[in-house]
Design a protein around this nucleic acid. Structure first.
Lengths: 334, 334
DNA sequence: GCCGCCCGTGCAACCGGTTCCACTGGTACC
DNA sequence: GGTACCAGTGGAACCGGTTGCACGGGCGGC
């Protein structure tokens, strides 16, 4: 392995001069060029461990994420990995486990191994304790998720998304609209988001002077939604219009509708949230969000913060966009 | 930040003794216990940079993965993250980009920053050059994917999976079976896998003395499959039985069938491969694989290899399992 | 009772960089 | 012409661990 000393010796300068030439210390232009050429010839690469030991910088960003075999988290991480690479940071992944079983270890982990320059959490709601643990690390901290006091955060404006979806149905004349999704007792951000989307739904109905239906709470999976929908469609007052808290839930409702012999959108209109990659094949009208873009925003900010901390803590709510497809039709004649 | 010197001073011993007490060097039991207590009191944690500089070990495993907003890759990474945590390794993620645009950088990256104890690639086919680049790192290397000379690999026995799916249809009396999927010109493992599944399909038909239909090549997404299926179902000799190279393709076929007014399985039988989380909601008969388990196997092996290299290089083909649901029916009467 | 071995410990070198400080030589300014 | 300053460079300390080697003391074997 070729070291800085090798480069220095070969270039006929001291280690310090070689080091300065390779970073951006004060050296004459001629020396710098010479050292750089030698370094290139020797294929010299600085040892990250040594750099890290000397500078305290690690060139790595830590991620704390829940089990990410969901479209949302996986796409988010894709955006994050991409942006991190652009800033020349490595990405260190800590996963909370399928049922959050490693959650306790996560925060201790980054404290113990102080080998990241910044940390973020994504897609789950931090407890006050956890917020404190992250801030105690003394490095920049961000999060993808709902507004969280003390941390810079980004996420879709979920309330606006719920409102937008509901208003879209109202605009087609629907007056009796069901909201499907959410298990508020669970602390995952997924449910925090669904809660906010539900609030948007309520607000839209209230503005229109309409009464909500009782909310149908369920796990945010296609399978769970389908089962729930089957029950809903079997009832006497089966829903004619549904705001689903996510596209996966919407897909479950569409599948169940077809199985119940109902046509979408003639017999029932459905709006989702996400613009999941499968949404187009379901011809699903939905409220779009772009997790990869959210990840980019987060990393760009963290990279800047590592350079010179601003200590900002505010929340950024990203504007939702409605994507109209074929799963919404006019309300049935009264 | 409390250092080893602090612990040593407080314990009244030298740095070396403290170090040995904390690892497993030779120290008297009394000294060890004493040092450990002091270290705990002081919440001492070794600096990973210093350890890494001194030992060459980093406690990190590097991952090279394609854009992982697919179910397969995301689930694989979940299994890997879980297993790595169990072995007390960190996971460093390198993502190839949505269209493989960072692929060239990936291999150089791990060479330059020599800060991982092992590397693996997942879910794409390595070129001979890339295999060489990985092996040149001088650390254990593994891969999730097809057999690759020179590297220890794991993956589903894709040929057996294709055969199993086809035989399942043959067993219900089908004689005219279509295979949907695969774009062999692309180098992603996805297509390597589809190629092998197609080979299994051909082999099953050959054994039964039947002729294959011309293969329908398409991108492995629900949307692409749906579009392709719409064309297939509009033809005069529309297929009555389909082996899809993946569940997402199968879902596209099911959606298209319904839209064409065809009933599954009465008018057309469909078998997928994967057991995707949405498969149950589609009532899809499929050949199961468990990416998380594959990830576990990989990491367990790598962790052992880091400890004491065996230099093994063989391929492990994992046996497929058929999950029978409702998307397959008997062949139509001749 | 003496020799030799081994256990437990400390000293110091080392891993591979960065950076403070001192030094030199040249230039600008008075 | 002398002084002040500054650019450019080298020496050496330092980051925080690990580990080879030397040393002292206790104990077993003859």
């Amino acid at each position: 392995m070729v070291t800085l000393a090798d480069v220095a010796r070969r270039a006929g300068v001291s280690k310090s001069t070689a080091s300065r030439a390779l970073s951006d210390g004060r050296v004459s232009a001629a020396t710098r060029e010479h050292v750089l050429r030698i370094a290139a010839e020797l294929h010299y690469v600085a040892s990250p461990a040594a750099v890290s030991l000397a500078t305290g910088r690690t060139g790595t960003i830590g991620a704390i994420v829940p089990a990410f075999d969901t479209w949302y988290t996986a796409t988010l991480i894709r955006g994050i990995a991409h942006a991190a690479l652009r800033h020349d940071f490595d990405l260190l992944l800590f996963e909370l486990g399928e049922h959050g079983e490693h959650r306790d270890r996560a925060f201790d982990h980054f404290r113990r191994r102080r080998h990241v320059d910044a940390v973020f959490s994504a897609n789950f709601a931090l407890t006050r304790r956890e917020v404190g643990a992250l801030r105690d690390l003394g490095i920049p901290v961000g999060a993808i998720g709902g507004p969280t006091p003390g941390i810079r955060t980004w996420c879709l404006d979920d309330e606006a998304a719920g409102r937008l979806a509901t208003q879209h149905l109202l605009g087609r004349g629907h007056r009796d609209i069901l909201f499907a999704g959410g298990r508020p007792e669970e602390p995952l951000a997924m449910y925090v988001a669904e809660e906010a989307r539900h609030a948007g739904y309520l607000s839209a109905l209230r503005s229109a002077g309409l009464a909500p239906r009782p909310r149908r709470a369920l796990l945010p999976t296609v399978a769970a939604a389908k089962e729930d929908a089957a029950a809903a469609f079997a009832a006497d007052d089966r829903p004619r219009a549904v705001v689903a808290a996510s596209d996966e839930i919407a897909m479950g409702y569409v599948l169940a509708a077809r199985e119940a012999g109902l046509s979408v959108p003639a017999d029932v209109s459905v709006v989702g949230v996400d613009d999941h990659p499968h949404a187009a094949a379901f011809d699903l009208t939905t409220v779009q969000q772009d997790p990869a873009e959210q990840g980019r925003l987060l990393i760009d900010w963290l990279a800047g913060e590592i350079d010179e901390p601003s200590g900002e803590r505010q929340h950024t709510a990203l504007a939702p966009v409605l994507v109209a497809r074929g799963s919404v039709g006019p309300a049935p004649a009264a």
